[in-house]
Nucleic acid binder design. Structure first.
Lengths: 346, 346
DNA sequence: ATCGTTTAGCTAAACGATTCGCTGGCAAGG
DNA sequence: CCTTGCCAGCGAATCGTTTAGCTAAACGAT
């Protein structure tokens, strides 16, 4: 079928050991033999059998990447970055979508073990209770992505959610808002909790005690935010600003505002976690918290490669906390449609 | 290190053959032995070594997927669909981004061969000249995605670009437009050529002979369309409508319109190939051609699996031509800001 | 009792690489 | 001339599976 190293050896009239030495440059081989082997490789069209090599070497040169959904632009961007960094280091990437489903995730975790990925980069969907047996079963270095698992200290690359959200909310407060609503994500995820914490911190710092009705729960998907937003927007008095805890929920929120015929920012100011290309093209542009997606992916791979290189695994977990930036656009203005504050708005 | 089938065999007091038979259900094994083996598997935490299995079986249960850029929402959606379908059939997916770069692509094609993927799903970046030696070197079944390579009949899943574009342009003509501009993609790609063809067909069918200046070339990236659009919008007389040949270029086009302070659709109507979630949230909503991304990905996997199952490879190429739908939104109106036609606009 | 038949379960040979340790030829030193 | 040392290149074991082909036990028929 496909030529093997044996075929090359036969064609060059040498042993397989010599072909291997030439192909990998692992040993000195005399000039004439090198030429003959090189020639035989070209002639046969030989490509080393990666699977056989993996078996012998005990390394697959593969990284596993489990995200909740690659169509979420945040994960798309991170995945792209992970793949770039991985390929640069000679690793390929196997991608899975857990859909925030712990059962599906269990299947994929098992898949990664069977395939003997050299390391796993993973945005976990569950909390510590879901991963009772994880420590025992997983052998490959594992780097958490975007989220941490409370009670399981592990390597992780996350963003400073508390600070980022606090700043965004304080921006709204600075514009004069007092009734600021929050649409949260799934409550067992560290990101949701931290973003909620940032909201509370900001409000408390300005002696605001928001009604609990202003904090409504979504599930990080567009639809949930749409429903939540409809409830919020029908409240009396209506909140003057709403913050969505991620990009998809921002979409749902905007849709609800559009449906009710409310004007933004005159009737309601909007901001959200996660930036995305189209955010600046909305009218008005959407104020967002932009995560450093490239840096996040690159950092995750960096830690993964470091762990692969380490013989022992007795190291302290490394938690890289990345910094986001608040991108001010036109969707936030003074409450009640007052005169817009100075500053560039898109 | 990790338990092997040998460890399980020892623990259960049977031979490795029996463990294999139990694990795979490939042979009858007596009830008591099955129990002992099952128990030993649990006790040891054994997970079959996928690499060794691949070597023996000659199949990796892996599909290669090469797209130009996963951050392009079209490819994101298709990739998601490919992965769903692949996983359902027990295959994993290795993902690569060629960035429309034939050199990078060559590296990835080689990677796929080394890794012995069972089939390859591939959006090629080059034309036939770039793939002179492809036929000889590639062994795995290969399904082209989104684009075909003129002069290389191969399995492919594409969309009916000519018809889709013709319909969109005819929609504009129907609104009264005569000076309709087109921003094309990279000229060597079948998608660009077919979309251009659809534009020409539509114009010709209505006895319109568009100035060649109305057809400007982009490269499928946002920036190129932005520049192209600036040139178009400064023309005198200005085109009354612009069609962008893909989603990213639609973004660049909209940005340019925004920068020049033009109103859409009063000053200029806009439509584009590729739908995306945010398209309906723009003001006005963007009229787009929505490709059936889920169906495209699923079909590609379907053909791939079929080919994997076939012993011989003497089959005629299968070209699946999928149908898109034109999503009418508010970005297209009568030229010169006339009264909007009847019908729902978002 | 002997033979043949059936069959559960075992032994060992692949799969295609890498690599340890050996071989044998040659140069230099005695 | 013989020994020693050196080293290019080779043979064969190994990685963890699957599976062809074998062994031996059990049983029925003669």
């Amino acid at each position: 079928m496909m030529p093997t190293i044996k075929d090359v050896a036969r064609a060059a009239g040498v042993s397989v050991a010599t072909v291997s030495a030439v192909a990998n440059g692992t040993k000195y081989v005399s000039e004439p033999l090198v030429r003959r082997v090189r020639h035989a490789i070209d002639a046969t069209g030989y490509q080393p059998h990666g699977v056989a090599r993996s078996l012998k070497n005990g390394t697959t040169q593969t990284l596993g990447l489990i995200v909740t959904d690659i169509t979420n632009p945040f994960f798309t961007a991170v995945a792209r970055s992970v793949e770039d960094a991985a390929h640069l280091a000679g690793y390929a990437v196997v991608l899975c979508n857990s859909d925030e489903d712990v059962e599906k995730e269990r299947v994929y975790l098992q898949l990664m073990r069977r395939r003997r990925v050299d390391a796993l980069i993973w945005a976990p969907a569950g909390d510590v209770a879901s991963y009772k047996d994880f420590r025992a079963s997983q052998r490959a270095p594992t780097i958490l992505l975007d989220r941490q698992i409370a009670g399981m200290p592990m390597d992780a690359v996350v963003v400073d959610n508390v600070r980022a959200t606090r700043e965004a909310i304080e921006h709204l407060i600075g514009l004069g808002h007092r009734r600021i609503a929050l649409i949260t994500g799934l409550p067992h995820l560290s990101t949701s909790r931290e973003r909620l914490q940032g909201y509370r911190d900001a409000m408390a710092a300005h002696a605001l005690k928001p009604s609990t009705r202003l904090v409504v729960q979504g599930n990080f998907r567009s639809e949930s935010a749409h429903d939540a937003a409809l409830r919020l927007l029908h409240m009396d008095p209506r909140p003057t600003a709403v913050f969505a805890s991620n990009n998809l929920m921002a979409i749902g929120l905007l849709r609800a505002i559009r449906e009710l015929g409310l004007r933004c920012p005159e009737d309601i100011s909007v901001a959200a976690f996660d930036d995305f290309e189209e955010a600046s093209l909305f009218t008005p542009g959407l104020t967002t918290i932009a995560q450093p997606t490239i840096a996040i992916g690159a950092k995750a791979v960096e830690i993964a490669l470091k762990r692969i290189g380490e013989r022992d695994d007795g190291h302290l977990p490394e938690v890289a906390k990345m910094q986001s930036v608040l991108r001010l656009r036109g969707s936030c203005g003074p409450p009640g449609g007052g005169p817009p504050r100075a500053g560039k708005r898109i």
